[in-house]
């Protein structure tokens, strides 16, 4: 297969970026999207040009490092996958593919397609945990947890922190990311104890970092590679309003 790639290139955080057009040919349909970029990069290195930078690590859809905005969709034209799980058979021979970095003021571009997602770490640091230190905890079976709650908590906990929700949202809102953590911990008895402080601190940090607000468009849910539902956002709203009023 042959493709025309229109890729965002930007030297550094401070420089102005631009789109550059590349061509790749003889790509196998079984090739993954990132492997296709590897092939492009090999071509560039052959010419002693700088390869296109993009984040990636596990290449099996779980670390959350990869994330490209491909033809108008975070993680490209397939459902429930990360960019690294996207394969070229999803495209037509001869397609032009536009590749952009995640856009959003809290996710500034570092270089080319690499963005800085430290904002997510800061939100978690603000309270996305149960404040338990190592040791001195009760036996694991001391507090039974209804299976339904454990399952719902696990649904939310599946978040990989890739940022596709923010990238997809027209408001650049991080509500799904925050909701996933708040909802996970709020559904477990261990997490209830500091549920109030947690949600207040995390939302405050989210606002402070300049993420937009949620208008319930559902774009995040549609693009979440782990299929996390916006019902968790409702849960976040509920937790927040409750924490502030009562």
């Amino acid at each position: 297969m042959n493709f025309t790639l229109k890729i965002w290139r930007q030297e550094s955080a401070k420089s102005k970026g631009k789109f550059v057009v590349y061509n790749v040919s003889n790509i196998s349909p079984d090739c993954s999207f990132l492997e296709m970029l590897d092939i492009l990069n090999q071509q560039l290195i052959d010419k002693f040009e700088k390869p296109v930078c993009f984040d990636h690590d596990c290449r099996e859809g779980i670390c959350g490092a990869c994330g490209l905005y491909i033809n108008g969709r975070p993680h490209g034209p397939d459902e429930d996958i990360t960019t690294c799980q996207l394969h070229m058979r999803r495209f037509k021979d001869g397609d032009t593919i536009v590749i952009e970095p995640w856009r959003g003021r809290p996710f500034p571009v570092i270089k080319d397609l690499v963005v800085d997602r430290n904002a997510f770490d800061k939100i978690i640091a603000a309270g996305g945990y149960i404040s338990v230190s190592t040791g001195g905890v009760p036996d694991a079976n001391a507090i039974p947890i209804p299976r339904e709650d454990a399952d719902l908590a696990m649904d939310a906990a599946a978040c990989i922190g890739c940022g596709a929700c923010v990238a997809a949202c027209k408001n650049t809102s991080a509500m799904l990311f925050v909701a996933a953590k708040v909802s996970q911990l709020a559904r477990l008895p261990q997490g209830r104890i500091e549920a109030k402080e947690r949600v207040i601190k995390m939302v405050a940090k989210m606002d402070e970092l300049g993420f937009g607000s949620c208008t319930n468009t559902g774009a995040c849910e549609a693009e979440c590679p782990k299929n996390i539902s916006i019902s968790h956002i409702a849960k976040l709203n509920r937790e927040y309003i409750k924490a502030k009023i009562f």
Binding site: W8, F19, Y69, N71, G72, R73, P74, V98, E100, R103, G104, R105, P106, A168, K170, N171, T172, S173, G210, F211, G212, N216, T217, G218, A219, A222, E223
Partner: peptide, 16 residues
């Protein structure tokens, strides 16, 4: 403001 520079390709995610 939160978005900053927008996308070249308009988003066409499945949304409401």
């Amino acid at each position: 403001i939160a978005r900053g520079r927008g996308y070249y390709k308009a988003n066409y995610s499945q949304t409401s």
